[in-house]
Design a protein around this nucleic acid. Structure first.
Length: 249
DNA sequence: AACTGCTTCAACCGCCCAGCT
DNA sequence: TAGCTGGGCGGTTGAAGCAGT
């Protein structure tokens, strides 16, 4: 589900490579996103500023949650969409860790169908002046794959997200934290020198943790060792003060 | 096995708005 | 006030993956 990389006027388009991600993360971690238009030039990226911003905001930014929407999150999205319409950024503001783009996709691929079908049922109810039982409504959810037959809500997103896609460091941690990852190859990750992207870094970018100590010196730590050490809360691994465009660890 | 249509989501595009000069 | 620039937002698209035939 990715676009074929292409080049136009020296500006790359399409799928981001792990190497490009590494460069972007490394640059923003050290300098912040002071100017998106200028950023690619200084970060050594052949991308337009908008593309960099989008990649960062929707995929690389710390503390992003991916996939597996909870029932509460779905309810909030449905409720707020009913109130606000397609104000995805406002809806996203109510769902920490979710991006407007992701919510928008989730709405179009899952929730819209569900809401539409529920509304159809309501219309039919009105016309026939008879109420559908909760079990009938539940059956619709089952048909749409949002609820299993035993009544337990199932993840809406494809679990392959965690198994096959190139997870960002934060996503890896988020997934482990959420106990979503079981035997994923992306269980550790590292970037030894944020200023220099070595081949080894690119190879290991998605396989070792992105960890910096309080003095900004990069460390290499496996995700499992971080998780096993209660003195290393996740918030210390990645904390980004966006308003100041600075990183604090 | 090959083909076809559908689903999904990352990424792009174009417009709008705010801030600055 | 007008013009310019950068950032943000919502709509749309491209293409891989999947399911059905």
């Amino acid at each position: 589900m990715v676009r074929t990389p292409s080049e136009k006027n020296g500006v790359r388009k399409g799928t981001w490579t792990p190497e490009e991600d590494a460069k972007l993360i490394a640059y923003i971690r050290h300098h912040g996103h002071w100017n998106w238009r200028q950023l690619p030039k200084y970060a050594g990226l052949e991308r337009c500023g908008k593309s960099c911003r989008l990649r960062w905001m929707n995929y690389l930014r710390p503390n992003l949650k991916r996939g597996c929407y909870t029932k509460e999150e779905d309810d909030i999205i449905i409720k707020m969409h009913a109130e606000l319409g397609n104000k995805w950024s406002l809806i996203a503001a109510k769902l920490p860790g979710r991006t407007d783009n992701e919510i928008k996709n989730h709405w179009h691929t899952h929730l819209k169908k569900r809401v539409t079908k529920h509304e159809q049922v309501k219309c039919e109810e009105k016309e026939s002046s008879s109420c559908k039982s909760q079990s009938e409504v539940d059956k619709i959810d089952e048909e749409l794959g949002v609820k299993s037959q035993d009544g337990v809500r199932e993840p809406l997103s494809n679990p392959q997200i965690f198994e096959s896609s190139p997870l960002s460091p934060v996503q890896v941690v988020d997934c482990v934290e959420a106990n979503e990852m079981k035997g994923s190859p992306h269980d550790s990750f590292a970037l030894s020198d944020p200023f220099t992207v070595h081949d080894d870094d690119v190879d290991s970018f998605w396989t070792k943790p992105f960890f910096v100590d309080n003095f900004g010196a990069p460390n290499e730590l496996s995700t499992s060792s971080i998780l096993q050490d209660p003195s290393l809360p996740f918030s210390d691994m990645f904390y980004y003060e966006g308003s100041l465009d600075c990183w604090f660890f």
